[in-house]
Nucleic acid binder design. Structure first.
Ligand SMILES: [Mn+2]
Ligand SMILES: [Mn+2]
Length: 252
DNA sequence: GCCCTGC
DNA sequence: GCAGGGCAACGCTGC
DNA sequence: GCAGCG
């Protein structure tokens, strides 16, 4: 059959795309090769979100509607131009995670069935000090988009008071992510505490719109998920395609 | 999606 | 040759 | 220590 494999030339390498015609988004008819071509088209932006960061792989070998699994450890068999870095867990266990820096590595990851990209907030060069604080706005069901947007604007004001700049994007699901560049100087617990302080600040500014309550039952409006800044937690990066039926994208 | 194992 | 299994396990919360 | 949360 005329399908098993296609080769794309990217970043000076030949990268295989297996099952290029496989339908990954049945509702829209988008194929695996469509997904690869999308990522090539936005490679500059997509790489800005993941470059130099270890990432957890969330793999959908049968497309967005199929089963998925997480994979922290890079597949043992991989080209020598695919970079990894060794992470240590508190348990003492180790994991070699993928680090993407160019479009060839990106396509290689997409070929594994990764639809969205989930980088850590750290760089491979310094795994203990995040250089990105992530403000994850998760609306409870039924919250209108305008409220989410308004909370994001309040986040901007609150950040400004600390001399910080937030870079917003849709999550591609229901909420908004605001990424904040920080000096790689603070530990995970310290960054998480900063995110909590920010969440409480925002909640105080617009208590009708935003909440920092951990318990779902006590939440109303937009939950500012500060815990997303804990260690070993990742967030879908900018330009990631989400595994939704309509192939929505996290749009800056 | 792909490897590894075992039949 | 082919079917089946594996592929993560964190850290924080309030009780 | 537990289960809820993501
Ligand atoms: Mn979110
Ligand atoms: Mn969240």
């Amino acid at each position: 059959m005329a399908d098993p494999k296609e080769t794309v030339e990217v970043a000076g390498r030949e990268v295989s795309v297996t099952n290029p015609g496989k339908v990954y988004f049945p509702e829209r008819g988008y194929t695996k090769l469509d997904l690869v071509r999308y990522y090539l088209a936005v490679a500059d932006g997509a790489l800005r979100g993941v470059r130099g960061r270890p990432m957890a792989l969330k793999r959908f070998p049968d497309g967005a509607a199929g089963d998925f699994f997480f994979q922290k450890r890079a597949p043992r068999s991989r080209p020598d131009w695919v970079e990894t870095v060794t992470l240590a867990f508190p348990s003492g266990r180790l994991a070699d995670e993928i680090v993407v820096r160019d479009a060839a590595q990106l396509v290689w990851v997409v070929n594994l069935g990764c639809i969205d990209l989930n980088p850590h907030p750290t760089r491979a060069e310094d795994l203990d000090h995040p250089d990105e604080l992530r403000v994850d706005l998760d609306p409870v069901p039924g919250v209108p988009w305008d409220h989410i947007r308004r909370v994001a604007l309040v986040v901007r004001d609150a950040l400004e008071a600390y001399g910080l700049v937030g870079w917003p994007k849709t999550s591609g699901s229901r909420g908004i992510h605001v990424n904040v560049r920080i000096e790689p100087r603070w530990t995970f617990p310290e960054v998480r505490r900063a995110a909590l302080a920010l969440a409480r600040d925002v909640e105080q500014r617009v208590p009708e719109l935003a909440t920092s309550r951990w318990w779902k039952e006590e939440r109303h409006g937009v939950f500012i998920d500060y815990n997303q800044n804990a260690k070993d937690r990742t967030v879908a990066s900018a330009y990631s395609v989400r595994p939704t039926p309509d192939a929505r994208v996290s749009a800056p």
